[in-house]
Design a protein around this nucleic acid. Structure first.
Lengths: 337, 337
DNA sequence: TAATGTGCTGGTAACGTTACCATAAATGAA
DNA sequence: TTCATTTATGGTAACGTTACCAGCACATTA
């Protein structure tokens, strides 16, 4: 194991100077700098991150607390974030937590155990209170969701996401514009304060504004973002024998399962039933019929999340809530009636 | 920040004793142990991993070098491995590398930077030489692939995977059993020594053994495991106007894109063309038509990978190559002619 | 009785790095 | 010339933990 001491003696300078060179600090002469770099390269030196983290005021690690990798949307988002982080000096420490676990607690523990510089939360809950986040004494950004139900003031938290309520509203309006009135909704999560709840609110608002009564029989819940369960939930919806001509699935993963269930039950999509989703999974463009969906700008969400977090860490920016827009991709899964 | 010193003075013992308790070592009296645990809990103590890694002989981190997260199969495998690792004391350090990067080099660097106890390689290349892996001085396991092209003796490396050649052979034989003779193959990767190459060999062997000549016009390549590219490749295959009644896609992701491309080009699947894949993505069971595929035992691959690596680290086992079998799931995408 | 374990405990030097202070040399201003 | 200021460097104490050695009771054996 090559250490800065080895480099120091080999290059004929002190460990302090080596450390300064490695960390790209200004107060070093060109001669010393070049000599150190040359020796470091020759000896194939790799800094020991543990020692760095321990000695430094903070580590160069960012924690990612993920919930529900079951939904491929988050796998895709993970890839994007990982990619964005690659361009920085920071590395990612990932912690996947169960849907029931307390993510704030998990984040706080990871942060202290690994001396993280910052945290990214993905796929979480919405209801944070100031007391809850007070245990987090480092910068954090919520990715793909905001704090619509909590009572946090905008100054004390950051997020990068779409406006779930507004986008759902837009999706349902698209269906209504196509002439649909009997629109079922396929929800996930049993928790009240979830992304599902927000999108449900958008559904309700759209129907109300267009003078359509909400029919509880057309509100179908599934426990999570899982193909098999969503399939069963759709079968259940069909078995209610309540007429509907369209399904708004609050996620592409649910939408794809719904299309399959409808198809297996003898319904044509979009002939008999139109289906629209939200999220924009890569695969949803390649199924038959192509899924109509509101595509989240995954690349930009990931990029902006990393950017914002780093700016906050480096005190170039303060907390803010960034809201991005989806793009409506018209696929083959809906038609007008 | 609470340290073992705080606990030591609060509990009235030495730091050595606290360390012993935290690490569950035997030589501590019950009285001291209980007192320390009580104080640690009261002060909400969380061990500093950096200090641990630095002071200890090795860290409790395992590195995961992943290639090509583009293929959802690896996202799903990642979830499984993450889950399996949860049950152990080890934590995961993930490094996603580009398809051109040298994974051995990446692994070696990560291992030294973070003082890893072991490495898992996923989605990589096949051709390792003893010199190449000699830079890795820690235990490692190749997950989902083996070393079919390299000249490593079985004693010096470990893997958990299916037999890609044999499984491809099985898939193509299934098509032949259904009466198909003009069987196209959809490959990925331009590199010679890949998973794609092995599956291609299985395809060739099956055809040869059943007396079918290999038609180069029916061998269609795409540069990687990507839906859009696979779609284009299939279109290209169709445009050759070479008759074929079946497609063997060497991965589900390619198979799904192929089905879509065939469908958009006016071919019925399986009416005109049968399609079979390998891997077993979650979604492939929910597309129309349900994909026929050889399902990799993802859970078991992940579990055995972690198990084997930990056994090697803890010297309970030596290197070995574990080969698991797929399960043929007959979907709607093939039919006999 | 003396010698030899055995179980538990504390002290302290690592681990590899950074932060901070001290100092020497070089430069500029008075 | 002399003093102040800048620039480049080295020395060393942290950081929080584990590994290792030493030592003290107390029990066991010859």
């Amino acid at each position: 194991m090559i250490t800065i001491k080895d480099i120091a003696s080999e290059a004929g300078v002190s460990v302090s100077t080596v450390s300064r060179v490695i960390n790209n600090r200004p107060d070093v002469s060109e001669v010393a700098r070049n000599k150190v770099l040359e020796v470091a390269h020759k000896l194939n030196y790799i800094p020991n991150e543990s020692a760095r983290d321990l000695a430094g005021t903070q580590s160069d690690s960012i924690g990612l607390i993920m919930r529900g990798i079951g939904n491929p949307f988050f796998s895709e988002m993970f890839g994007v974030i990982e990619q964005s982080m690659k361009k920085t000096k920071y590395s990612l420490a990932i912690n996947q937590i169960s849907s029931t676990a307390n993510e704030i607690q998990a984040g706080a523990e990871l942060a202290r155990a690994k001396r993280l510089s910052g945290l990214i939360f993905m796929g979480g809950n919405f209801a944070y209170t100031p007391e809850m986040i007070s245990v987090l004494d480092i910068p954090f950004v919520c990715c793909t969701y905001s704090n619509k139900f909590g009572d946090l003031s905008p100054e004390i938290f950051s997020s990068v996401s779409i406006d779930d309520e507004a986008e759902a509203y837009r999706a349902v309006n698209a269906l209504i514009d196509y002439g649909h009135k009997d629109i079922a909704i396929l929800l996930a999560d049993t928790e009240d304060q979830s992304i599902s709840e927000l999108r449900y609110r958008g559904y309700c608002r759209a129907l109300k504004e267009r003078g359509i009564k909400i029919n509880p029989n057309l509100v179908q819940k599934t426990t999570n973002f899982n193909l098999a369960e969503a399939y069963q939930a759709t079968i259940h919806l069909i078995n209610k024998e309540q007429e509907f001509t369209a399904v708004f699935a609050i996620s592409d993963i649910l939408a794809m399962a719904a299309i399959k269930a409808l198809h297996n039950s003898g319904y044509q999509v979009p002939g008999d039933v139109s289906v629209i989703g939200i999220d924009g999974l890569n695969i949803s463009e390649f199924i038959i019929p192509t899924l109509t969906s509101l595509i989240q700008p995954k690349l930009e969400i990931g990029r902006r999340t990393v950017e914002l977090l780093l700016d906050i860490i480096e005190q170039k920016s303060s907390n803010q809530q960034i809201v991005l827009e989806t793009e409506l991709r018209l696929g083959e899964s809906i038609r007008s009636i």
